[in-house]
Design a protein around this nucleic acid. Structure first.
Length: 220
DNA sequence: GACCAGGCACATC
DNA sequence: GATGTGCATGGT
Protein backbone atom coordinates (compact mmCIF):
# COMPACT_ATOMS: atom_id res chain seq x y z
CA UNK A 1 0.00 0.00 0.00
CA UNK A 2 2.24 2.72 -1.22
CA UNK A 3 -0.82 4.95 -1.27
CA UNK A 4 -1.00 5.19 2.49
CA UNK A 5 2.65 6.06 3.03
CA UNK A 6 2.56 8.74 0.39
CA UNK A 7 -0.76 10.03 1.68
CA UNK A 8 0.60 10.39 5.20
CA UNK A 9 3.65 12.14 3.82
CA UNK A 10 1.57 14.62 1.87
CA UNK A 11 -0.57 15.39 4.89
CA UNK A 12 2.49 16.06 7.00
CA UNK A 13 3.98 18.25 4.31
CA UNK A 14 0.74 20.16 3.96
CA UNK A 15 0.59 20.77 7.69
CA UNK A 16 4.21 21.46 8.53
CA UNK A 17 6.80 23.39 6.63
CA UNK A 18 9.63 21.27 5.22
CA UNK A 19 11.92 20.62 8.15
CA UNK A 20 15.12 20.97 6.16
CA UNK A 21 17.27 18.85 8.41
CA UNK A 22 20.94 19.40 7.80
CA UNK A 23 20.43 21.39 4.62
CA UNK A 24 23.71 23.23 4.21
CA UNK A 25 26.06 21.52 6.62
CA UNK A 26 29.05 19.55 5.45
CA UNK A 27 28.67 15.76 5.42
CA UNK A 28 31.38 15.42 8.06
CA UNK A 29 29.56 17.80 10.36
CA UNK A 30 26.38 15.78 9.86
CA UNK A 31 28.22 12.57 10.75
CA UNK A 32 29.30 14.09 14.03
CA UNK A 33 25.83 15.50 14.63
CA UNK A 34 24.28 12.07 14.22
CA UNK A 35 26.28 10.85 17.23
CA UNK A 36 25.99 14.02 19.27
CA UNK A 37 22.20 14.12 18.99
CA UNK A 38 21.69 10.58 20.35
CA UNK A 39 18.95 10.76 22.96
CA UNK A 40 19.52 14.48 23.15
CA UNK A 41 17.79 17.60 21.90
CA UNK A 42 19.15 18.96 18.65
CA UNK A 43 19.77 22.27 20.39
CA UNK A 44 22.33 20.71 22.72
CA UNK A 45 23.99 18.83 19.90
CA UNK A 46 24.28 22.11 18.04
CA UNK A 47 26.06 23.73 20.97
CA UNK A 48 28.65 20.98 20.86
CA UNK A 49 29.14 21.39 17.11
CA UNK A 50 29.50 25.13 17.56
CA UNK A 51 32.26 24.47 20.08
CA UNK A 52 34.03 22.20 17.64
CA UNK A 53 33.75 24.79 14.92
CA UNK A 54 35.06 27.53 17.16
CA UNK A 55 37.99 25.36 18.12
CA UNK A 56 38.73 24.85 14.45
CA UNK A 57 38.48 21.07 14.59
CA UNK A 58 35.48 20.54 12.35
CA UNK A 59 37.67 18.58 10.01
CA UNK A 60 38.34 14.83 9.98
CA UNK A 61 42.11 15.00 10.28
CA UNK A 62 42.22 17.80 12.81
CA UNK A 63 39.57 16.18 14.97
CA UNK A 64 41.38 12.89 14.71
CA UNK A 65 44.45 14.48 16.28
CA UNK A 66 42.56 16.22 19.05
CA UNK A 67 43.32 14.80 22.52
CA UNK A 68 40.37 12.95 24.01
CA UNK A 69 40.14 15.21 27.06
CA UNK A 70 39.76 18.25 24.80
CA UNK A 71 37.15 16.52 22.70
CA UNK A 72 35.20 15.67 25.84
CA UNK A 73 35.32 19.26 27.00
CA UNK A 74 34.13 20.66 23.68
CA UNK A 75 31.14 18.35 23.31
CA UNK A 76 30.01 18.67 26.92
CA UNK A 77 26.80 20.59 26.16
CA UNK A 78 25.48 17.62 24.20
CA UNK A 79 25.35 15.48 27.33
CA UNK A 80 26.75 11.95 27.76
CA UNK A 81 30.03 13.59 26.86
CA UNK A 82 32.31 10.77 28.02
CA UNK A 83 30.34 8.20 26.05
CA UNK A 84 29.92 10.38 23.00
CA UNK A 85 33.58 11.37 22.91
CA UNK A 86 34.42 7.67 22.74
CA UNK A 87 31.84 7.09 20.04
CA UNK A 88 33.14 9.99 18.00
CA UNK A 89 36.66 8.62 18.40
CA UNK A 90 35.50 5.25 17.10
CA UNK A 91 33.78 6.92 14.18
CA UNK A 92 36.93 8.90 13.38
CA UNK A 93 39.08 5.81 13.59
CA UNK A 94 36.84 4.24 10.99
CA UNK A 95 36.51 7.28 8.74
CA UNK A 96 40.07 8.60 8.89
CA UNK A 97 41.94 5.39 9.65
CA UNK A 98 40.11 3.19 7.22
CA UNK A 99 38.95 5.60 4.53
CA UNK A 100 41.44 8.43 4.81
CA UNK A 101 38.77 10.86 5.95
CA UNK A 102 37.63 11.03 2.36
CA UNK A 103 33.99 11.25 1.36
CA UNK A 104 34.98 10.31 -2.17
CA UNK A 105 36.29 7.03 -0.80
CA UNK A 106 32.88 6.31 0.71
CA UNK A 107 31.09 7.02 -2.53
CA UNK A 108 32.52 3.89 -4.09
CA UNK A 109 30.91 1.72 -1.42
CA UNK A 110 27.40 0.33 -1.73
CA UNK A 111 24.66 1.28 0.70
CA UNK A 112 24.54 -2.16 2.25
CA UNK A 113 28.28 -2.51 2.76
CA UNK A 114 28.54 1.00 4.14
CA UNK A 115 25.74 0.29 6.57
CA UNK A 116 27.44 -2.91 7.71
CA UNK A 117 30.70 -1.04 8.26
CA UNK A 118 28.98 1.68 10.26
CA UNK A 119 27.21 -0.87 12.44
CA UNK A 120 30.51 -2.45 13.43
CA UNK A 121 31.56 0.85 15.00
CA UNK A 122 31.04 0.83 18.73
CA UNK A 123 28.39 3.43 19.54
CA UNK A 124 26.81 3.47 16.09
CA UNK A 125 23.48 1.65 16.19
CA UNK A 126 20.84 1.31 13.48
CA UNK A 127 19.37 4.78 13.80
CA UNK A 128 22.70 6.57 13.88
CA UNK A 129 24.02 4.49 10.99
CA UNK A 130 20.95 5.26 8.90
CA UNK A 131 21.08 8.94 9.85
CA UNK A 132 24.64 9.10 8.58
CA UNK A 133 23.73 7.23 5.40
CA UNK A 134 20.73 9.42 4.66
CA UNK A 135 21.59 12.85 6.03
CA UNK A 136 25.34 12.92 5.54
CA UNK A 137 25.81 10.72 2.51
CA UNK A 138 22.51 11.13 0.69
CA UNK A 139 21.81 7.40 0.52
CA UNK A 140 18.21 6.32 0.12
CA UNK A 141 17.76 4.81 3.58
CA UNK A 142 14.80 5.31 5.88
CA UNK A 143 15.61 6.36 9.44
CA UNK A 144 13.34 4.76 12.00
CA UNK A 145 13.00 6.36 15.39
CA UNK A 146 10.75 6.07 18.42
CA UNK A 147 8.18 8.50 16.99
CA UNK A 148 7.94 6.58 13.73
CA UNK A 149 7.18 3.36 15.55
CA UNK A 150 4.75 5.05 17.91
CA UNK A 151 2.75 6.86 15.27
CA UNK A 152 2.46 3.95 12.89
CA UNK A 153 1.74 1.36 15.55
CA UNK A 154 -0.93 3.57 17.07
CA UNK A 155 -2.72 3.72 13.74
CA UNK A 156 -2.43 -0.01 13.31
CA UNK A 157 -0.27 0.33 10.21
CA UNK A 158 2.56 -1.67 11.70
CA UNK A 159 2.75 -4.26 14.44
CA UNK A 160 3.36 -2.72 17.85
CA UNK A 161 6.08 -5.33 18.34
CA UNK A 162 7.80 -4.67 15.02
CA UNK A 163 11.54 -4.22 15.33
CA UNK A 164 13.73 -1.62 13.67
CA UNK A 165 14.43 -3.62 10.55
CA UNK A 166 10.80 -4.55 9.98
CA UNK A 167 9.67 -0.95 10.23
CA UNK A 168 12.44 0.21 7.95
CA UNK A 169 11.54 -2.46 5.45
CA UNK A 170 7.91 -1.37 5.57
CA UNK A 171 8.89 2.13 4.54
CA UNK A 172 11.59 1.25 2.08
CA UNK A 173 9.48 -1.23 0.17
CA UNK A 174 6.32 0.86 0.22
CA UNK A 175 7.41 4.44 -0.15
CA UNK A 176 7.91 6.03 -3.52
CA UNK A 177 10.56 8.70 -3.48
CA UNK A 178 14.23 9.54 -3.41
CA UNK A 179 16.63 10.32 -0.60
CA UNK A 180 15.13 13.80 -0.39
CA UNK A 181 11.72 12.32 0.36
CA UNK A 182 13.13 9.93 2.95
CA UNK A 183 14.99 12.82 4.54
CA UNK A 184 11.94 15.01 4.85
CA UNK A 185 9.60 12.17 5.83
CA UNK A 186 11.62 11.21 8.87
CA UNK A 187 12.01 14.82 9.95
CA UNK A 188 8.29 15.44 9.55
CA UNK A 189 7.46 12.39 11.67
CA UNK A 190 9.67 13.73 14.42
CA UNK A 191 7.93 17.06 14.13
CA UNK A 192 4.53 15.38 14.30
CA UNK A 193 5.60 13.39 17.33
CA UNK A 194 6.78 16.46 19.18
CA UNK A 195 3.52 18.27 18.62
CA UNK A 196 1.00 15.46 19.06
CA UNK A 197 2.46 12.24 20.37
CA UNK A 198 3.87 13.04 23.75
CA UNK A 199 2.69 11.01 26.68
CA UNK A 200 -0.23 13.29 27.35
CA UNK A 201 -3.05 12.44 24.96
CA UNK A 202 -3.21 15.37 22.65
CA UNK A 203 -4.54 14.38 19.30
CA UNK A 204 -6.83 17.26 18.53
CA UNK A 205 -5.72 18.85 15.33
CA UNK A 206 -3.27 16.12 14.42
CA UNK A 207 -3.11 15.93 10.64
CA UNK A 208 -3.57 12.16 10.90
CA UNK A 209 -6.43 12.41 13.39
CA UNK A 210 -9.16 11.16 11.07
CA UNK A 211 -7.03 8.15 10.18
CA UNK A 212 -6.98 6.91 13.77
CA UNK A 213 -8.76 3.64 14.44
CA UNK A 214 -11.95 3.94 16.46
CA UNK A 215 -11.26 3.91 20.16
CA UNK A 216 -10.12 7.29 21.18
CA UNK A 217 -7.27 9.68 20.86
CA UNK A 218 -3.69 8.85 20.22
CA UNK A 219 -2.05 7.79 23.46
CA UNK A 220 1.36 8.53 22.16
C1' DG B 1 11.56 19.38 40.54
C1' DA B 2 10.03 16.04 37.34
C1' DC B 3 10.20 14.91 32.71
C1' DC B 4 12.01 14.79 28.18
C1' DA B 5 15.23 14.86 24.06
C1' DG B 6 16.50 13.03 16.47
C1' DG B 7 20.33 5.92 21.24
C1' DC B 8 23.43 2.56 22.42
C1' DA B 9 25.93 -0.91 25.01
C1' DC B 10 26.07 -3.78 28.77
C1' DA B 11 24.52 -6.37 32.97
C1' DT B 12 21.34 -9.34 34.79
C1' DC B 13 17.74 -12.46 35.05
C1' DG C 1 15.82 -13.18 24.48
C1' DA C 2 13.61 -9.80 27.17
C1' DT C 3 13.98 -6.28 30.45
C1' DG C 4 16.55 -2.77 33.20
C1' DT C 5 20.19 0.61 33.77
C1' DG C 6 24.02 4.06 33.04
C1' DC C 7 25.32 7.78 30.50
C1' DA C 8 24.58 14.03 31.33
C1' DT C 9 23.19 18.47 29.57
C1' DG C 10 19.72 22.11 28.85
C1' DG C 11 14.72 23.28 27.97
C1' DT C 12 9.70 23.10 29.41
Amino acid sequence: MPGLLNDVYNRLLARFAPQQWWPGDSPFEVMLGAVLVQNTSWKNAELAIANLREAGVLDPHRLDKLPQAELEELIRPAGYWRVKARRLRNLLTWFVGRHGGSLAALEAISDDVLREELLTIHGIGPETADSILLYALGRCTFVVDAYTARVFARHGWIDAEADYHQIQDYFQSGLEGDAGTFNEYHALLVRLGKDYCRKTPKCEGCPLEDLLPAGGPCQG
